[in-house]
Design a protein around this nucleic acid. Structure first.
Length: 491
RNA sequence: CGGGGUGUAGCGCAGCCCGGUUAGCGCAUCUGGUUUGGGACCAGAGGGUCGCAGGUUCGAAUCCUGCCACCCCGACCA
């Protein structure tokens, strides 16, 4: 089985690449570092989008859209911001092409040089706060709770499908508030929302916490993140939410008059998740047979496959199958009845396993005779034969069970691979060995953090919100520490 | 951007070192037939600017130079 995929044990990153390609999720394009998201992959992204969009709206946010291009000068207004992004910006310098004089091909028209270059957004804080300046005068104009679904470009050196591409799709929330407290609350609300989404919809357990200063978003006061563990023991940052203080308000001169008539700068947050979530989803659950998708995000939840020898067999099976399809459809499930006679049942079984369809129903003459169906779950590959009556209830329950089981499995793995280390030796053994998360004491200095990174590649993923105060000694420097932080080698 | 590797049919590869008929093989595709409860079988067919540009040579997939792309490992990052 699974001779079409490189196995996880053999080469985890090759397995991931194979899976993305063979499950027809995405492929590389003619443009370096940019991917084509194929229909099946995009369907999963649409499910992710739909649920997140619902959650954003349920917490009072609205969608808007800002330009792809940002005047170069906007970036220099916030010092830390420009420093963080300058190295990976694509820049538009001209607005016209013309035929080459020599008659061969087309060239940039040197006369069509832009007076001010435009940066293709790597993130939209600057262009958005430039607009907010005009929208905000009084506390009555606040808060502004806006989200944008967009593409952004970050000219990365090394790219990998979904995990790191030069162009990616994401959503970015940009909110404006009258008080620091309100903004902090908002930033925290959104990281909680992301964590809830990861756990409930993606079946992906995450650690929540704040980044250290060196890992913080360029221009933020506090960056909060959710961190997930992949099957190879590496961590993946799955979402971030930033408390931006008054940095962008100051950079773009966004002031408002409060209830006491005093003028103050506006407080900001921004938060986002990207198509990288697709990578997390793929890597966290899948196996050597292919994708394993949580039912809540599977574009196709149930597939029905007929097994027949003759045309009259197929007729009977189809009648039976169509009933099931209609029935399950009424229960709100997405069901496909695959009647293609160009592929054999065995081929279809393998293909839908590769694509991670959670539940498969096979119907053959045997089932017609016995009034049964064969039902198979993708997460455990278990098969059973069940009676035709009550199939709707059975499938609905099974999908819920699968959702829970996938989560529990990922949680167990995450917990088994979260180690509490007290010595440097032990720390290195785990990080260099099996990997995983390490909860360890840290003296709070950027120097120690950098040294640890240099020696082991491990970084502080976050200072977990729920880490309990505890007296200890930094594993590296031996200096006193009051709480453990979360280390891992990250993607 | 540094180190290593690879570019030959849609995909995966052999051929290259040691230049010489019509560039092979597996998978996939197409046609016909038999099949169909875990990636079916037989027969036949189609498909190639040998990554690109120069050079050496009577002759280049093969040798030389330059470039480009991709993969792996580092630094950077969601």
């Amino acid at each position: 089985m699974a001779k079409f995929l490189t196995s996880r044990e053999e080469n985890y990153s090759q397995w991931y690449n194979d899976l993305v390609i063979k499950a027809d999720l995405a492929e590389n394009s003619a443009v370096r570092g940019c991917m084509v998201i194929k229909p099946y992959g995009y369907a999963i992204w649409e499910k992710i989008q739909a649920e997140l969009d619902r959650l954003f709206k349920a917490t009072g946010h609205v969608n808007a859209y800002f330009p792809l291009f940002i005047p170069k000068s906007f970036f220099s207004r916030e010092a830390a911001h420009v420093e963080g992004f300058a190295k990976e910006c694509a820049v538009v310098t001209h607005y016209r092409l013309k035929n080459d004089e020599s008659g061969k091909g087309i060239v940039i028209d040197p006369e069509a040089k832009l007076e001010e270059e435009l940066v293709i957004r790597p993130t939209s804080e600057t262009i958005i706060w430039n607009s907010y300046k005009n929208w905000i005068q009084s506390y009555r104009d606040l808060p502004i709770l806006i989200n944008q679904w967009a593409n952004v470009v970050r000219w990365e050196m090394r790219t990998r499908l979904f995990l790191r591409t030069a162009e990616f799709l994401w959503q970015e929330g940009h909110t404006a508030h009258a008080t620091a407290g309100e903004a902090i609350e908002e930033a925290r609300r959104m990281i909680d929302l992301y964590a809830g989404f990861a756990e409930n919809s993606m079946a992906l357990p995450v650690y929540k916490g704040s980044k250290t200063e060196s890992e913080r978003f360029a221009g933020a006061i506090d960056t909060m993140a959710i961190e997930a563990l992949m099957q190879d023991g590496k961590a993946l940052q799955a979402g971030t939410s930033h408390f931006l203080g008054q940095n962008f308000a100051k950079a773009f001169d966004v002031k408002f008059t409060d209830q006491d008539g005093k003028l103050d700068y506006v407080w900001a947050t921004s938060w986002g998740v990207s198509t990288r979530l697709m990578g997390a989803l793929i890597m966290a659950h899948s196996d050597n047979n292919g994708l394993i998708l949580p039912p809540k995000l599977a574009p196709l939840q149930v597939v029905i496959i007929p097994i027949y020898k003759t045309g009259s067999d197929l007729e009977k099976i189809s009648e039976y199958a169509e009933k099931i399809k209609t029935d399950l459809g009424k229960a709100g499930l997405s069901v496909k009845y695959d009647t293609r006679d160009t592929q054999t049942p065995g081929w279809k079984f393998a293909d839908y396993e590769l694509k991670g369809v959670p539940v498969r129903i096979a119907i053959g003459p045997r089932d017609i005779a016995n009034n049964t169906v064969e039902i198979s779950r993708r997460d455990t590959l278990e098969k059973s034969t069940i009676p035709f009556t009550g199939i709707k209830e059975h499938v609905t329950e099974l999908l819920e069970k699968i959702q829970v089981n996938i989560y529990n499995k990922a949680l167990a793995f995450r917990n088994q691979n979260t180690h509490y280390c007290n010595t440097w030796k032990e720390f290195k053994e785990i990080i260099n060995g099996k990997g995983g998360f390490v909860m360890a004491h840290w003296d709070g200095t950027a120097e120690t953090e950098a040294r640890i990174k240099e020696e082991t590649k491990a970084t502080i993923r976050c200072i977990p919100f729920d880490s309990v105060p505890e007296e200890g000694k930094c594993i590296y420097s031996g200096k006193p520490s009051s709480r453990r932080v979360l280390f891992a080698v990250a993607y």
